[in-house]
Design a protein around this nucleic acid. Structure first.
Lengths: 362, 362
DNA sequence: CTGTTAGCGCTTTCAC
DNA sequence: GTGAAAGCGCTAACAG
């Protein structure tokens, strides 16, 4: 069935040279091969449609030209763009990607072992904790020790590790989002935060909320404790948080006119709550969120967001990895902090829609 | 640096047995090994933390326990769920996934070759033509000939091939979507279709439109030629198609009260057009679409959709592949047609929202 | 310049 | 039962 593969020996035979000559030619060590033979070899290769067996080559070179890309989850909007640009950069360099998704530390360890068995040359780890990965990273120390290069993206590290790492500036996102609202004239700004009391601490949630707080304080705006609603990063949480705000709308001294929602899931929930209660966004309450899913621009109203710098993260991570892969001696670790990028659309009230929603009663 | 790997020989030495014995034990051929030695070997393995080198094993077994998964594009909503369930099924069987994305036939061929060089045991091809892949499949014949098993998902085949293939029933989606609208009482139903005049023919677009037509005819409803708007499967196209309809709203004899939109991109565009023109969905125009992105349930109104049976496709494809991988002799090819699944939400008018949108003028 | 040879780490006959 | 030995397809010294 499977047509017996043509080997380097077949080529050598047809070209009437030795296998090592063929190997030389194929690996570009042409300096040692005369043109005539070179031609003969190349012709034989073509004639036989010979393709070197990468496995055999890997075994002797002890390099596989594959990298393991390990995600915490494949289900997210965040996954696609990042894997795509990892792939786009890796492929021209001749590297293949072996993919793995690992919801928890245990399965991550297994995946790493499986990939090590496969002799991958390096790793990229990408953490988006939609499935509250129990963050443990001690097992990455082994990789380090074995000299296998890797880089981690958005991985919450419970302590200081000497890893190549790329992080997102959550605090800044909260800070800038809130400032954006403040510059728009808002002085009463609530927040729907991620899980603030999670164990272990959910860094991004805490930091985004701190950014919000910082911006308010910087502008001497009142910080109403009840205006920090924990939405647990979920749709339902966002919905309930918005409902709570709605119910207590007029009870407090004043009501918030703007909202910093710490992720897009919760934003969807909050929007739905407002929609059901007939509260207009952004006219009655302006809204800025973190995370820029593809549909953000197509919601009603279109969402003003701070987008994860996914492409940058993927590109930088891949470049760092490639450098390490090519380097003969070990390179210094790199720690990179990336900023979220503002996309101003309708929900913050900056870009009002062509026709106001009020018109629908026409 | 890279701590020199422990090999089977090290284990043999420590256990004071031969390498072949170790190999036997590790491969579960325990029938030929006495318990005592078995123990010694296992202990040595543990002590040395030995892990067999998969590459070396692959070379002699001529099996790599990896499958190549080749997508036309990584950017789609459709990609994540499908890769996830391929992975979920493959992993327990010990298979790894090598990922590739290939926008056109040329790069697909290259990717296939690269993966063949890596000796992958099989392939899964997934086509979502967001990047109008020039559909060519003759090169898959080579795979067939070489006896490398593979299955194609949603691949538009320009002719009849003897491939394992999983298709989506586009015609039925259009038909059922339209019938759904008809059952809701609509008699004037327009459609925003995909590219009807694409070269080569864009099957899904044509078939979905035909399904729409079929349903109308079956119920003796008038087919207004102008109510077939080609939206080119794009956001912009959907927007323009909806605008056209809006402009000609009252010019025709009657106006459509419902709309079958052939994909979600165009739906977003159409919704935006309606939003800007103050036309209420579903009150003034009901809407059903094909494709069920994660945000469909969170739009305003929530979208009634026919969802791609992605998980089923991924599961079935993977199972077929695994069967072929395990089979000693070649299995018959399988051709499977999957139906889209209806998700009834708000945009068709079946599930009106708790409070009507009119209330927002309160 | 070119061919011979010794492995890479593992599995698998095949004698003993 | 167990071990010695022959490769899997390729690369990389090392002679010539």
């Amino acid at each position: 069935m499977r047509r017996k593969a043509v080997t380097i020996r077949d080529v050598a035979q047809l070209a009437e040279v030795s296998v090592s000559t063929v190997s030389q030619v194929l690996n570009g060590n042409m300096q040692y091969v005369r043109e005539a033979k070179r031609e003969r070899v190349l012709n034989a290769v073509r004639e036989l449609r010979y393709r070197p067996n990468a496995i055999a080559r890997s075994m002797v070179k002890r390099k596989t030209a594959t990298v393991g890309v390990v995600f915490t989850s494949l289900v997210s909007n965040l996954f696609s763009p990042i894997i795509e640009c990892i792939q786009d950069i890796l492929r021209p360099h001749g590297y293949n990607i072996i993919l793995a998704s690992t919801p928890d530390a245990e399965s991550e360890i297994q995946a790493i072992n499986a990939l090590k068995d496969q002799q991958v040359d390096g790793f990229i780890f990408v953490s988006f904790m939609y499935a509250r990965l129990q963050s443990q990273s001690d097992h990455l120390l082994d990789l380090k020790e074995e000299g296998i290069p890797f880089v981690v993206i958005n991985r919450p590290l419970e302590q200081e590790y000497d890893f190549n790492q790329i992080r997102f500036n959550h605090r800044e996102a909260g800070y800038l989002a809130t400032k954006h609202l403040i510059h728009l004239g808002h002085t009463s700004i609530a927040t729907i935060s991620g899980p603030l009391h999670h164990v272990p601490p959910w860094q991004s949630a805490i930091e985004r909320q701190q950014g919000w707080l910082e911006a308010l304080k910087e502008h001497n705006l009142e910080v109403v404790p009840e205006w920090i609603r924990d939405g647990n990063y979920t749709y339902q949480g966002g919905y309930e948080a918005a409902c709570w705000l709605l119910e207590h709308w007029d009870i407090g001294r004043k009501r918030p006119t703007a909202l910093f929602v710490a992720n897009d899931e919760m934003t969807l929930g909050a929007l739905r709550a407002f929609y059901y209660h007939g509260v207009q966004v952004p006219h009655e309450v302006a809204l800025v969120t973190v995370g820029d899913p593809p549909y953000a621009a197509h919601m009603f109203p279109a969402l003003t967001t701070f987008a994860h710098p996914l492409k940058e993260a993927g590109q930088i991570a891949t470049r760092i990895l490639i450098d390490q892969l090519h380097a003969t001696d070990s390179l210094p670790t790199q720690k990179i902090m990336l900023s979220y990028q503002l996309h101003t659309r309708e929900s913050c009230g900056t870009n009002p829609e062509p026709k106001s929603r009020g018109l629908i009663a026409h």
